[in-house]
Computed example of a mutant assay.
Amino acid sequence: MPLTNNDRKLYADLDRAKTRREHGLFMAEGTKCVLDTIGHFEVRSLCATDKWLAIHGHEIPHQVEIITVKRNELERMSHLSTAPEVVAIYRIPQYTIDTEMLSPGITLLLDRVQDPGNLGTIIRIADWYGVRQIICSPDTTDVWGPKVVQSTMGAISRVKCHYTPLPDFISEHRGIPVYGTFLDGDNIYSCRLTETAMIVMGNEGQGISPEVEQAVSRRLLIPSYPPGAPTSESLNVGMATAITLSEFRRNLLE
């Protein structure tokens, strides 16, 4: 089945959140990203070159519709600086929050995280540390954007992101400790952390919003080293997430 001009235009426009919402579609690009996600989402179509199919065609489920395309067609659809030899178009899944995973367990809350690369990295970090769902504020960047999907390195297949107002979500689940990182918090390395927790990570430039900060019950500090020495103003939100989750998991092993 050939690729139509309408489909080509639609796929090229999937870098726009409005288009993704209207059509309920998102794109995965490149061999690793496609092979890591192909069995986890409903496929609308898979576009690949003859060269790619000769090498990897046997790894694609038989029921998947495959469209053979030229490299220049992929260049017109791709959102990467160098076009790959395969892209998969998936239908966006409809998730519901699994409340049974909240306790016991760690739930990551993202407050207005804007950079797609940061969100993708955080999803990848969450996957590494066994966090299976992330609650995002409505103004956090869209998880189904091409840059986010690409930077998750396949973790988007295992970590589910939900969008809802964080103050309301926290209020609905009172009794679970809510942690956040601040410059005036308690040293994370000397705190006794709980097995069940909500961990809030804030906006890249402004941190945790005042509305969400009011709901934080335990303020943490990731200290610089050595104490008092001049350092960078702050940590990247992805780096801060990795340090925080690592420390929570380390506490469970003690």
Rank of each mutant, 00 (worst) to 15 (best):
T82G: 06
E75H: 11
S103T: 05
D98W: 04
T99R: 03
P104K: 03
D115Y: 09
Y95Q: 07
R71C: 06
R91E: 05
E85V: 08
P93K: 08
I89Q: 05
P104A: 02
V113L: 03
P84L: 14
R71T: 12
Y95S: 10
V64I: 15
Y95R: 07
P104L: 02
V113M: 00
D115P: 02
S78N: 08
L102D: 01
I97S: 00
I67G: 05
T107R: 02
Q63R: 11
T96G: 02
S103H: 04
R112A: 06
L108D: 06
E75S: 15
D111V: 13
P104Y: 00
Y95D: 13
P104E: 01
E73D: 14
G105A: 10
A88F: 11
V64G: 11
A88T: 13
D98H: 04
E100G: 09
K70W: 03
P93G: 10
P84A: 14
E65T: 12
Q114K: 13
I92N: 03
L74F: 12
M101R: 14
V87W: 03
P104S: 00
P84T: 13
A83K: 09
I106W: 14
E65I: 08
R71P: 13
S103W: 00
V64Q: 11
E65K: 07
T107H: 01
M77K: 03
S78I: 04
A88C: 15
Y95I: 02
N72Q: 11
K70M: 09
E65L: 08
D115L: 07
R76P: 07
E85A: 11
E75F: 09
T107G: 01
V86A: 14
G105M: 10
S103I: 01
N72F: 12
Y90Q: 04
L102N: 00
G105K: 10
R112N: 08
V69P: 04
V69D: 03
V69N: 02
D111M: 13
D115G: 00
Y95M: 08
D115A: 05
T107I: 00
S81I: 13
I106Y: 14
L110G: 01
Q63W: 08
Q63A: 11
L74Q: 12
A88V: 15
L74S: 12
Q114H: 14
L80T: 13
D111F: 14
S103N: 08
E85S: 14
T82K: 15
T82M: 12
V113T: 04
E75N: 13
P93I: 08
I67E: 09
I67M: 09
K70I: 04
L108V: 06
D115I: 12
T107A: 01
Q63F: 11
Y95T: 03
T68V: 15
D98K: 03
L109V: 02
D115K: 11
P116H: 07
R91L: 02
S81W: 07
D98F: 04
I89T: 05
L109C: 02
T68H: 09
S81C: 03
E73F: 04
I67V: 15
V86N: 07
T68R: 14
V86P: 01
Q63D: 15
R71F: 10
S103C: 04
E73V: 05
T68P: 01
S103D: 07
H79M: 05
I97M: 01
Y95V: 03
G105C: 07
R91N: 05
L108N: 07
I89N: 06
E100A: 15
V64L: 08
